[in-house]
Simulated scan of single mutants.
Amino acid sequence: MDSEKKQHSASVEGLYIGELSTIGPGNTATGIFKMPSDKTHQVGELGLNGDIQVDKRVHGGPEKAIYHYPAENYAVLQQALPHLSVSFQPGSIGENISTQGLLDTDVHIGDTFRLGSAIVQVSQPRRPCWKVNHKYGNAHIASVIMSEAISGWYYRVLETGQLRRGDSIELLDRLDNSIPVANVWQIFMQRLVKQAEHSTTSGHTTLAKIPGLSDEWRFE
């Protein structure tokens, strides 16, 4: 575990806080437009103080308190949609935290991290909604994120604390039989295919059996 802790550590290269804004032709309220912050922010059970989370059905709440998106994922988006390369920059997808060195394929559901002085746990992938597509002006963003399994992840807050840009992120614990965040998408996409084919055959792993996963993702 000590070697894993060293391997799965990073620093907060970008900290982003959302303000109330609107998006789309209906001027729907949103907090997806986030600005970089160099201030120290309190980490509470519902996220970072000052960060706006409008639609609690898809963002926010105890299981989606803080959103972490690896900076490396933007290179995948740039390769998939090169005409939007300039738009794919850290902070633009609505994340609170940007890092280098922690990937969806390495970080597991249920991993516990020290984040600044707070302690947080990976709860679920981010399921991209229509606002992501609309923000970049392209209808394919969400599907690329899901198919490439580069959604980033949410944290639940186990112990409150403080966080600012430059603080460290350190892996404290990993649950037995846990799986990477990216693997959740593989299982989810396989489930969609089976549903489309009206198949009743179950795979070796179901979302319901993944330790540490949020209840809203626990489909049989």
Rank of each mutant, 00 (worst) to 15 (best):
P62S: 11
E63S: 13
N27C: 07
S87H: 12
T201W: 06
S11A: 14
P25L: 14
G94F: 02
E95Q: 07
I169L: 14
Q79R: 08
F188G: 10
I66R: 03
F88R: 06
G44C: 02
V54W: 03
T99P: 06
T206S: 14
S87V: 05
G47N: 02
A208W: 12
H108G: 09
M146A: 11
G31N: 02
W217Q: 15
I169A: 03
V184M: 03
D167W: 07
K135P: 06
L207W: 02
G24A: 10
H140W: 11
M35G: 07
A142K: 01
E19G: 12
A149D: 00
R165M: 15
K209S: 15
A182E: 05
G61Y: 01
H59V: 15
S143K: 03
Y74S: 00
S85C: 08
S21E: 11
Q79I: 03
Q53F: 00
T40Y: 13
S21D: 13
K64G: 04
I141V: 10
R126G: 00
V43W: 01
L115W: 12
I150K: 00
A75Q: 12
Q121K: 13
H83E: 15
G44E: 01
L103S: 08
I210E: 06
E63M: 12
Q190F: 03
I187K: 02
G137Q: 06
T201G: 13
S178G: 03
L213G: 09
D167V: 11
Q100H: 11
I119F: 01
F219M: 09
Q162D: 02
I97R: 06
G26D: 14
Y69E: 03
S9Q: 13
L171Y: 01
N177S: 09
A182S: 15
G203C: 08
G91D: 02
K209A: 15
R57D: 04
P70G: 04
V181M: 01
G110D: 11
Y136S: 04
S3M: 15
N138C: 14
P70L: 02
Q7Y: 07
E95K: 05
A142I: 01
V184F: 05
V58K: 12
I150F: 00
Q53T: 08
L81W: 05
Y154P: 00
Q121C: 09
K131G: 06
S98P: 08
R165W: 08
L192S: 05
S117R: 12
E170G: 10
L163A: 06
T201K: 14
E95G: 01
K209F: 05
D111G: 04
T28R: 10
F113R: 03
L48P: 07
S199N: 08
R218M: 12
S3E: 15
